[in-house]
Every structure is written in C-alpha cells, then in structure tokens.
Design a binder for these strands. Structure first.
Length: 220
DNA sequence: CGGCTGATGATCT
DNA sequence: GATCATCAGCCGG
C-alpha cells in the first residue's frame, strides 16, 4: 500500500469531484483478480484505473463494466485467437485494446485462464483526479461525458494500441483498489450495443452514478 | 432527454 | 464485401 499525492493542476472553473489532496490506494495484483469474467466484472466496479503520463498521474473510478465470458457469441475471443485479439488469450490482468468502428479504442481486462479468450470491457469512468486535464483538448461539451462510454474512456485516458500490455506490470496504466472507497450499489442489467446475446445480464454498474453510460434508465 | 443515423477503418471471410 | 463490444450530431417532444 502507498499513498498517492496528487499534483495535477485543476483547470480553472472545473470543480474536482473528489477534493481529497491525498488518497490511499493499493495496486491490484494478479492474485486479486478472480479468474472468472463475471466475478471480475463485478469486482472492477468501484476500482480505479490509473494512468501515469509525462510525470503526472490521472485516476478514474470504474463505474461500469461488461463481462464477455468464454463461449459468449459476442465475445471477440469466441472464434479463437487472431492477430487482433491475441492479447485476449494471455494471462488474466492483461489489457486487450482494440479499435472499434474505425475510430474508438476500447480496453478489456483479460479475465480467465490463458487461452480462454474472455474479458471485461471497461465501459465508463468517473474522474477522481486529473482526467479533465488530460481530456481538455478533446471535443467534449459536458464534463460528465469525459469518460462515459468505452470509447470516450480510452480517449480520456489516452489509451491506444500501445497499451495492449499487462495491467499488473505496466508502469503507465494499472488498476488499483481505493481504500476508504465510498459505498456503492452494484446494478446488473442486460447489455447494449451488441448484436448477439444482448439479453444476457452481464453489464454491471454503480447505481445512480451520473458517469454511467447510456440513458437515465441504464444507470438506475 | 430519448431515439435514430451516418461516419469510420480494421478485421476476417 | 460484410461486420462491428461506438460516437457525435441531429431531430422531435
């Protein structure tokens, strides 16, 4: 465990949501990750995604995930490994980053045993510190939309194909547990934005959190 | 706010 | 050539 001192500059006029100058957090090790896509998807809601870039540290609270278990027909790993999805078949805790619809990067956390090809998509982030700074250059009208949705999440955190690495070893992108974390009510729902097995209840989110993607109903 | 549509380009068939 | 784990922008109520 170590204490994180935030030194990011807060942009003028933007109210930080978590105003703590210090935050206690602990990096997640591989052993902290359950080797099951659904269990991992549930565990990751409320955890932190941390990005170290150019001497600054950015952190966001994961408020929405989606499980893509083995044998899920909508999983990218369903038809076995290819050039694109090969990192999805590595040991759990790796990142699988891909380009969706030609323009949006998305990031999965590899979930199950090596060779299985299942993961957890990170769908939305609540800025805990500094994400406003990093995303300032992007065209985002509302602060609440900075990382609301998997493509925006990756863009806000500056994640691209180069981050197709190991979140348990990477020095610039990693997962952490927030000690003294605020209480959270876990919501479960059907999925969205996919064509196959849409009705499976594999989407997990922090109930009532305004940074969860989709319509109002999808965060209740 | 909710619903719909076109853009977009890598990937796989 | 079809598919797609998305998004911004537009439109109606």
């Amino acid at each position: 465990m170590f204490r994180l001192l935030f030194t990011a500059i807060i942009p003028h006029g933007s109210a930080p949501l978590a105003c703590t100058a210090t935050m206690r957090m602990k990096r997640l090790r591989r052993g902290d990750l359950p080797p099951d896509a659904v269990a991992l998807a549930r565990l990751l809601v409320g955890k932190l995604l941390v990005r170290d870039l150019a001497g600054m540290r950015f952190a966001g609270r994961i408020v929405e995930t989606e499980a893509f278990p083995s044998r899920d027909p909508s999983s990218h790993g369903f038809r076995g490994p290819t050039r694109r999805n090969r990192s999805l078949f590595l040991e759990r805790g790796h990142a699988y980053v891909y380009l969706a619809y030609g323009s949006c990067h998305c990031i999965d956390v590899v979930a199950e045993a090596p060779g299985t090809g299942s993961g957890v998509l990170l769908r939305a982030l609540q800025s805990v510190w500094g994400i406003e700074v990093m995303a300032r250059r992007r065209h985002v009208t509302r602060e609440v939309d900075l990382a609301r949705g998997p493509g925006r999440l990756a863009a806000a955190m500056g994640i691209d194909l180069r981050h197709d690495g190991d979140l348990c070893r990477d020095k610039t992108l990693w997962l952490a547990e927030e000690l003294d974390a605020p209480p959270l009510h876990l919501g479960v729902s059907a999925r969205n934005g996919i064509t196959r097995a849409r009705e499976r209840r594999l989407r997990f989110y922090a109930r009532g959190n305004p940074y969860v993607s989709g319509t109002r109903r999808m965060r209740e």
